[in-house]
């Protein structure tokens, strides 16, 4: 465990918990894409299949349980909570799941480290995580504004991505045989998507106006 990895995990954790706590407190999920949240729940469910078979550390197991619990809780709030679900704008959250999920299944089946069920699911979760933010970015683009909730959320997720890349660079130079092409490339693609968002986020902040993403 290095400082980049720990800081990356903590910002990732903060992003999910901040979102969950805010939805719980303000009883609103306005501006949040349910589709992105459901995709993240699928990401964690397919990646952590090893939770009961491979013990890595107490830290690892607890973090996995928190990510699973919080991501499914967020989906439950948006879908089922009697007040929160009213603030969900279904008509704006239009991104089609198939355009994201099918290419990821296809890619995971042909590009993986080992053709076993667990390994393909793990690879699928990496590809899916890389693009799961797309419905959220499309929603931002459609509503053309970003409030504190979505802003902080996407900011924390972006910080997590950047820190993980620093973690990989650090591990590459300090650990023997530490080479993982699939998570690295998927992770870089994911970070680039956030980078695009950050550019507009920074631009709107600098000009002190509401975020306007290009059409």
């Amino acid at each position: 465990m290095n400082i980049f990895r720990l800081a990356g995990d903590m910002t990732h954790l903060a992003s999910v918990l901040v979102l969950l706590l805010k939805i719980h407190t303000i009883k609103s999920c306005a501006g949040i894409s349910l589709k992105t949240q459901e995709l993240y729940a699928i990401v964690f469910a397919t990646r952590y299949l090893d939770i009961f078979t491979d013990f890595i550390s107490l830290y690892n197991t607890i973090m996995k349980l928190i990510f699973l619990g919080s991501s499914f809780s967020i989906v439950w709030y948006i879908r089922q909570h009697k007040i929160v679900r009213r603030s969900y704008d279904k008509d704006q959250d239009t991104f089609r799941y198939v355009f994201i999920v099918l290419p990821c299944i296809f890619l995971a089946l042909i590009i993986n480290e080992k053709f076993t069920f667990k390994e393909v699911m793990w690879t699928f979760s990496l590809y899916l995580e890389a693009v799961a933010i797309l419905p959220q970015l499309v929603l931002l683009q459609r509503t053309r504004n970003i409030d504190n909730l979505t802003g902080q959320y996407v900011f924390l997720l972006g910080a997590y991505r950047a820190l993980y890349i620093l973690n990989w660079i650090y591990r590459y130079f300090t650990e023997p045989h530490y080479i993982h092409w699939i998570p690295w490339i998927a992770g870089i693609v994911q970070t680039l998507l956030y980078g695009d968002f950050f550019y507009y986020y920074f631009h709107s902040w600098k000009n002190n106006k509401k975020l306007q993403l290009p059409a």
Binding site: D54, S57, F67, K114, Y164
Partner: peptide, 10 residues
């Protein structure tokens, strides 16, 4: 060798 690298990241 690859099998021995644990998936310790989240």
């Amino acid at each position: 060798e690859k099998d021995n690298v644990p998936k310790d990241e989240l």
